[in-house]
């Protein structure tokens, strides 16, 4: 891909700060300030993403995974806001910096891909122009150069006949092509951090594979870091190296994907793995997790998973277990983590 000399060289990236992670999320709480006690949807979430690392955040609906991602991107829907905590990008505090400065980072440094490209694309603008918009604004390219770059980016995301497709409107393209347009748009300024919110959930399985492979290749080529939010464990296994599992607004377990899948150290992670059909082990019985996640407004005291947990003991309902290291590189928020020593096939 020598023709694409974008981003990294042209955008004048800030130099990477040494000794700090590319993205640092620290004790982040997201929720709604109301007249009484604020409703905390995401509670004290912390994680780091190093340059080139690919991190998957897995959780069920309502776990707060998407809001965490949106808080990083500064795209929280009103009236949801960041209640406390810090989000640092390359050593700089994203939440404290002026809005204008933060906006300038979105595109050349941080970019986001959404689940439903149709709602994220402008329906009355040709897709080529939409891709070219970022490079024109952030990289200062001329209309002509940005247009050429847009076609190059489309070719790079595997869109056949890119020069012709660049003149199409979003509704004229299929779901898979629209998602590729979104990706082309996101990577057009060569970002260092790509935030993905269920980018393949709406796609057919063959197209999903193509899009996942594309993301993988783009990240490998440019050293881009990925934060990938999904509900699908198998997709995380295919795409990411690191994993954080969210439940009821908390990260309950994190670590390397392979290690976590092999030997989960939090009962919820284990429950997720045992309840999902595994194509490679068709005869394994599915073990559902009893009950359903707590409502945001009345989460139980203590460990939020305690009411559904098979390992629960009295102290679980008294205090929230902290996310602590249970093995090298493995964190789990469970008092009973030591009892989970089984290796799943």
């Amino acid at each position: 891909m020598s023709t694409v000399q974008t981003g990294a060289t042209a955008s004048g990236h800030q130099p990477l700060a040494t000794g700090v992670p590319l993205l640092r999320v620290h004790d982040l709480s997201v929720g709604v300030r109301s007249t009484g006690r604020p409703v905390r949807i995401v509670e004290d979430v912390s994680f780091d993403v190093d340059p080139g690392q690919r991190m998957g955040i897995v959780g069920e609906s309502g776990s707060g995974k998407s809001l965490t991602l949106r808080a990083i991107a500064g795209l929280l829907p009103k009236p949801v806001e960041v209640l406390s905590g810090a989000v640092e990008y390359n050593g700089a505090d994203l939440l404290g910096m002026p809005a204008k400065k933060r906006r300038a980072l979105m595109g050349p440094e941080i970019a986001m891909i959404f689940q439903e490209p149709m709602t994220a694309l402008n329906p009355v603008m040709r897709v080529g122009d939409q891709i070219a918009e970022g490079p024109r604004r952030h990289l200062g390219l001329s209309a002509k150069a940005a247009g050429d770059l847009a076609v190059q980016m489309m070719a790079r995301t595997g869109i056949p006949d890119p020069a012709r497709r660049a003149r199409a409107y979003p509704h004229e393209l299929s779901g898979g092509l629209r998602q590729r347009i979104m990706i082309a748009m996101a990577v057009s300024c060569g970002p260092r951090l790509l935030l993905c919110d269920e980018p393949t959930t709406a796609l057919d399985v063959t197209v999903q594979l193509q899009v996942l492979r594309l993301l993988e290749r783009l990240c490998e080529d440019t050293g881009t870091s990925l934060v990938f939010v999904t509900h699908d464990l198998a997709v995380v296994n295919q795409t990411c190296s690191e994993l954080a599992v969210m439940y009821a607004g908390h990260i309950v377990e994190s670590g390397r994907v392979k290690d976590t899948f092999r030997q989960p150290r939090h009962p919820y992670t284990r429950g997720l793995l045992e309840s999902a059909p595994d194509f490679d082990r068709p005869d394994r019985a599915l073990v559902p997790i009893p009950g359903f996640p707590p409502n945001v407004s009345d989460r139980p005291a203590g460990c939020p998973f305690a009411p559904r947990c098979g390992y629960v003991r009295a102290h679980c309902t008294e205090a929230v277990p902290p996310l602590a290291e249970v093995a090298p590189g493995r964190l789990a928020a469970c008092f009973e983590s030591d009892r989970l020593d089984e290796v799943l096939a």
């Binding site: 559902p288 009893p290 009950g291 359903f292």
Partner: peptide, 13 residues
């Protein structure tokens, strides 16, 4: 995997 387990799991929820 018994059905009883499923039934009780969803009881009163």
């Amino acid at each position: 995997m018994t059905t009883v387990a499923v039934a009780t799991a969803t009881r009163a929820m």
